[in-house]
């Protein structure tokens, strides 16, 4: 089965980017992306749409073990031209499932001088709901917001909650589930509520 591309690369990527910008500006808000589904179960249309929108010859992408199928590698090379990297510390984007974060993988966190030189996590989740056990506050959030994830997401959220300690260095994350997407930039304060 073929990996789909954007029907109208100029205008579709603009529209998807605006959804991404909106998601990153208002952490925890859910956005549904209109993108054709890629083959297989690993990656949903939202995650594939993000890759098509942001990756090109100038980006390095790290694929977590399990996601690094030959089909995906080939599709990424063909559709975006991005470079795949074995070293998470030099990745602009890292494709992960939340469980992978249980290991202390050395992604790029940026430096105090250049905190922007950091990896953005692109996460494939099984659950992504607007209500639930995670409470979010910080820039982009008027009062507070909630996210509901499943238990498997705990290592991911622990890793992102640790951003507060390293700020301005840290990891930004784009969470995806099927066609839905939300973002958790490093500026967001994350708490687990009972």
């Amino acid at each position: 089965m073929l990996w789909p591309t954007l029907n109208d690369p100029v205008h579709d990527s603009q529209r998807l980017f605006r959804q991404l910008l909106s998601a990153m500006s208002e952490p925890g808000t859910l956005h549904t992306l209109e993108v054709s589904s890629p083959p297989g179960d690993d990656i949903g249309p939202a995650l594939w749409g993000v890759l098509l929108t942001l990756c090109d010859l100038d980006t390095r992408v790290w694929l977590a073990p399990g996601l690094d199928t030959p089909e995906l590698c080939e599709a990424l090379a063909f559709h975006t031209g991005c470079r795949l990297s074995d070293d998470p510390a030099e990745a602009d984007f890292a494709l992960v499932t939340p469980g992978v974060l249980a290991e202390p993988i050395a992604f790029a966190l940026g430096s105090d001088e250049y905190p922007d030189r950091s990896t953005t996590l692109l996460v494939a989740l099984d659950t992504l709901e607007p209500t639930g056990e995670w409470r979010l506050t910080g820039p982009g959030i008027a009062l507070r917001r909630q996210l509901g994830l499943d238990a498997a997401a705990a290592p991911l959220m622990a890793r992102l909650a640790a951003n507060r300690e390293s700020f301005p260095c840290g990891l930004d994350a784009i969470l995806t589930c099927g066609a839905r997407l939300a973002a958790l930039p490093r500026s967001t304060r994350i708490e687990e509520v009972a």
Partner: peptide, 26 residues
């Protein structure tokens, strides 16, 4: 191109914008 800039330049700026939003004021 639409809006003058080529798509690769737009993507470069878009990636930078996402970082800018993630690190407010930087």
């Amino acid at each position: 191109n639409f809006a003058y800039l080529d798509e690769q330049t737009k993507r470069m700026i878009r990636r930078a914008l996402l970082k800018a939003v993630a690190i407010p004021g930087y």
